[in-house]
Design a binder for these strands. Structure first.
Lengths: 262, 262
DNA sequence: AGGTTTGTTCCGAATAATGGAACTTGATCC
DNA sequence: GGATCAAGTTCCATTATTCGGAACAAACCT
């Protein structure tokens, strides 16, 4: 049961439909029977059936013939490894995040924007480092997280408006921003301040400070956040502001330098 | 009827072609220009172009318009998160692997079979880590790794033969098995022994002991290995055999019990 | 048994993918 | 500057693929 149906644009062609099926299976979070899949998909039975067969033979879905259920296939894990390595900031940012983690001793998130949603691509726990896909790969809302707001704030005008309009504005807590106007005002503030705060807007008791990772040209690459618990934590986090901004700058610089050999 | 993953068949339909493109981009390991993609793909220019556009608009590829290059998209990371959580052994096996790791203090891998190849789905580093290739999400060869041979050995007859025939048999080291016959003989041995060894067959200086994770019915779920460095390490590893087999059994039991709520 | 739900196959119709060729764009080189 | 060449993009008639209603098979109740 998840989330705002989101703006998956008019699925183009067969490939779009196939990916739509993948989304359904992934969102379900459990093995799905064919009938359940059919209920969740607008596609007619026969069409869905053929598509699912194709995906299965391609290793994108796995079919458990005992239970007659479908789950996402391992081929995805393989592809995603490449995606994570290449087009996420995570590998570049890793050393800098490690350093920041050691310095502040709090939980750190690195996120990027994926179609108006926050996609966490790396995480460092206060206690011990985290294994790859257990946390990375999770998506979150853009309008009520520190990283989300930091990235939205620095998007170009038109993109930002489109992204803002796509937000769900579900009131997770009493502090959640629930209107386009309020969010735009907050984003304005964030642009002048340089950092954003999550003041228990997503989860009660959880606060964070976040900063965008920007190219010299001002393009948003991602965002970085330091999280802690308790409303009293905010002042403590403000203290980390210089370190956070410095690290975000370092990551931006590293990303800029980063060139693949040809 | 049979839905078990076959080979990388002649791409069925548009979806197959699209995924083939994804593979190319992922395998490249760096941003690709359109012309490079075209060179690596059998598809005609116009067809490829449309397909790539579709994939980009679907978030499966990311287009960097400054550099005119394509990289795998973040949507993959999101989908893979679901795949890893649901259809890999990793989440189920985690506590058992942690325990084994603490007990033996060496590098541990958990792998599954994906179209005759080894897919590493989890990894625990040794206290003093041995530097080597492999990470969660990475693929490796089946015929010259401990986990690969352990899984191949316990595949049903026909599937095993098909999988064995698909191996590359590239001689990574002087110890690499390089023929179907030799591999089949080794697999036979492994079936009677219950565990398999990698005697520097893949990387010089790296050895491991591996055991399959099997259902009570004998179906292969995955494999588990303990790795160490140096040819002298083999005897040391043999000492861990009971712990390895016990852990593999525990994981199998946990997987069997594991039922999704309905 | 009979009724009901779920999974699989068929096949004519129609849509969506195809790919050769023509057309931009923007470098590079007389 | 103008010619040359390659990379990237668009066009469009053809054809192969996909579509999906409906029939079929199989399991699953009571």
């Amino acid at each position: 049961m998840n989330t705002q149906s989101g703006a998956r644009e008019g699925a183009d062609g067969t490939v779009g439909k196939a990916l739509q099926i993948m989304d359904i299976v992934a969102d379900a979070g459990r093995p799905l029977r064919f009938s359940e899949l059919q209920a969740a998909s607008p596609l007619p039975k026969a069409t869905l059936y053929r598509l699912v067969q194709t995906l299965t033979s391609q290793g994108m879905l796995v079919y458990d013939c005992d239970r007659q259920t479908y789950t996402p296939g391992l081929r995805l894990v393989q592809l995603a490894h490449a995606a994570w390595r290449q087009s996420s900031l995570a590998p570049i940012a890793r050393p800098h995040i490690d350093a920041l983690s050691a310095e502040v001793g709090e939980t750190i998130h690195l996120a990027q924007l994926d179609r108006a949603q926050v996609l966490y691509v790396d995480k460092r726990n206060a206690v011990r480092p985290v294994e790859m896909y257990s946390q990375a790969g999770k998506v979150g809302p853009g309008y009520c997280t520190g990283v989300g707001k930091a990235m939205l704030a620095h998007l170009p005008e038109t993109e930002r408006q489109a992204a803002v309009r796509m937000q769900a504005f579900y009131p997770h807590t009493p502090n959640t921003i629930t209107s386009v106007e309020a969010l735009e005002a907050e984003l304005e503030t964030i642009r002048t301040e340089g950092v954003s705060f999550d003041r228990e807007e997503h989860e009660p008791g959880i606060v964070c400070i976040a900063a965008p990772v920007l190219t010299p040209g001002g393009r948003v690459l991602g965002a970085l956040s330091i999280t802690t618990a308790g409303p009293a934590g905010l002042e403590g986090l403000a203290r980390h502001r210089p370190a956070l901004l410095r690290t975000a700058g370092e990551i931006a610089a590293a990303a800029e330098t980063w060139q693949f050999p040809s």
